[in-house]
Write a protein that binds this DNA or RNA. Sequence first.
RNA 1: GCGGGCGUGGCGGAAUUGGUAGACGUGCCAGACUUAGGAUCUGGUGCCGUAAGGCAUGGGGGUUCAAGUCCCUCCGCCCGUACCA
Length: 802
Amino acid sequence: MNYRLAYLSEAWVNWCPQMGTVLANEEVKDGVSERGGYPVERKLMPQWSLRIMAYANRLLNDLDNIEWSESIKEAQRNWIGKSEGSSLRFGVSGMEFSIEVFTTRPDTIFGVTFLTLAPESELVPQFTTSENKKAVDEYVHYAKNRSERERQSDVKKVTGQFTGAYAIHPFTGEKLPIWIGDYVLAGYGTGAVMGVPAHDMRDFSFAKHFGLQIKKVIQPNSPSPLEKGQGDEAGCFDGKEGKCINSDFLNGLEVKDALKKIISEIEKRGLGKGKTQFRLRDAIFGRQRYWGEPIPIYYENGIPKAVEEKHLPLELPQIDKYLPTENGEPPLARAKNWCYRPDVGICSPSLVERGLGGEVELTTMPGWAGSSWYYLRYMDPHNKNEFAGKDAMNYWKDVDLYIGGAEHATGHLLYVRFWAKLLYDLGLIPVVEPAKKLINQGMIQGVSSIAYCFIRASGGDSYPTNLLPRVFLSKGIAKRFSNNTPSAADIGLVDAVRKKINLQIQKTHPNSTITLDLIIPIHVDINLVKEEVMPVGEFKKLNEEYGNAEYILEEDKFYCESIVEKMSKSKLNVVTPDDICTNFGADTLRLYEMFLGPLEQSKPWSTAGITGVSGFLNKFWRLFHVETKISNIELREEFKVSEEEPTKPELKILHKTIKKIQQDIENYSFNTSVSSFMIATNDLQGLKCNKRAILEPLVILLSPFAPHIAEELWGEGKLGHKDSITYATFPVYNEAFTADDSFAYPISFNGKMRFNLELSLSLSPAEIEKEVLANPQSIKFLEGKQPQKVIVVPKRIVNIVV
RNA sequence: GCGGGCGUGGCGGAAUUGGUAGACGUGCCAGACUUAGGAUCUGGUGCCGUAAGGCAUGGGGGUUCAAGUCCCUCCGCCCGUACCA
């Protein structure tokens, strides 16, 4: 608060009535809450916000200095949404005040034919003429009550209303009608735009819809972009490659030159100024829920004041219910003692006197408050005085590698950068970026089972909807209904069910009839479904609410659809790794997950192939043991490792593996590591190698991948070490052991590989060429022709062009 | 619309700076040891063809001695975002 980083203001917020809380922009998806999927509406509320916009430029520019995935960087760039342009004031005809707009294309100023304001704009009532008042009020009411979801789902629908007032063109003095329209957002820029229909798609569709004038002021340099536009888009050119026309003193200028000239002209005439606008909004910091850090602010005579440091941290008070109060206050309003006096600390309301203390803030911090800085605490977790000491922070500095989900691109991952900068500015941490490198790990997805059923309702004297039986449809039938191509048989089946239900409900509600219309998907527990077939009996048993449901089958079976999506409890598609741990061990699970593919890739969980990894670990184990057959069914296993000197081929296998694993770890390419371990094990098994000098380094290499088996082989009773393998030093790669003295050259003719030829690596390219051409096989493939050119790449390939 | 990513056998996926496409694993086929095999081991397995050979990295075109890799173009899939003036 003291640094003007946090402030209290009336702000339009995403209010979610069902959850009783405000949500951040990124917590809202498609007009509903990301968690729970409840509707969200826009509401003006006093809110604590953090001034992240003050950091917009730095958050944008510093992206160039960090090794984060391009997709995350790009998402953040878009979210910050920097655009450069100019502010510009339009006078209102017959009124004292003016309307300010922000535009990135002031060069099109002579093409302005109207202004549009957001319906929420406070200016609207001030200039609306009396004859338009009723229509405007109606429109504003309509627009405000149109949920975000509707607003977003039909972007194409053009709505708006003329206010009756006119603005004055600052250069030509023309009268421009002032409209309101919900394509203009209240929260961006000034909530008002200048309409240039000839050169902006949105203005264009608005103008076309309401029959407003369209005035062309940019002549495209190449005619194609204009002609390309088809149907509704024809006639609008929003590109920047063109020259100004019909534009007074701008005529003949290229757009980019016109931009400079018009901005200086606007500034000279005092109509506005060059300006940079960001899409990023300040971050709303209050949440109307219980679980969150309390905000250390109290209100003395209505003035917010900070709780003194000696009283920090505030702890959440006990309350009876974690729900908002009846009159809509946050849950903290239920606390009995939630007042503060600077001399006492948290206290009961009775201790608050006039001018001394007051109620403590009732909202709590959002989830990202803690996630934005907790990593700093890890550097010095036992420090009692500060979140982390200077020495610790100078030692650890930033996070070397952050592995996290891509879904936090514009939430947590932007805020954590913001906080780092903020703490750096306050001199509290030594770095401006929290993490040098970031990798998005892929998600293991689940395969969900979907059963389709009708949304049911009843007409007539309305049988209660929740008591109406559900009607489930087997996959094929549901698909045909969804595509509007049900067969006669399908319709017959549904009608039969409809009649049956009607008979049943009409016993109590004689005029009621069921309507079956839309089909919705319902997740079914995947443990129930085998090969897309759902046993209806068991399903009914497990789900009471579907006990009286009707099931329309195909070939006497109820089929579900399988879809791949995020693995999640709510989707009933969770596979626990417990069975795999029990049957194969935790090492196998760990190794298998690595072996599935690149770290960044998401893929559905499938255990096909897990036996390969398990088999590898068994094979690796057997390198250290001899098995003696006691009887037909019993084997005795005995640890046996030889102290003999390793041979050249054995050392070669080891050192090739060391090199590969080292590279793979540096590249986070764990799937290929697993395969090189398999290769090494197969090769050593082939050589029947059980030498300590080879196996011991190999166990160390394997230990980060399969820690349990490695630790066991390393310890007493096996390789006999006292300390944990964790402390063993990583083997050193020695090139001498892997060097070859010959290479099997692939010999190709016109780029097609024909045969291999083993040649010494000491040969010069000319000697290689000679050897190759003299080879009987080459002669065969040359078919008596003269080679035009021979390309020799040492240790790679020989290509003969014929 | 815009932005990011991706497309290779039946499947998961390998392939340094352009240099033997399909490593490794599954699956499948055959065999060995077995009362048995969901254990273990051996061999085979991209497609067409008896073979020689030909064709193959989403489709088409280009650069190159040589292209999964580079360039152009089209198609498809996934993720993010959405009236930002």
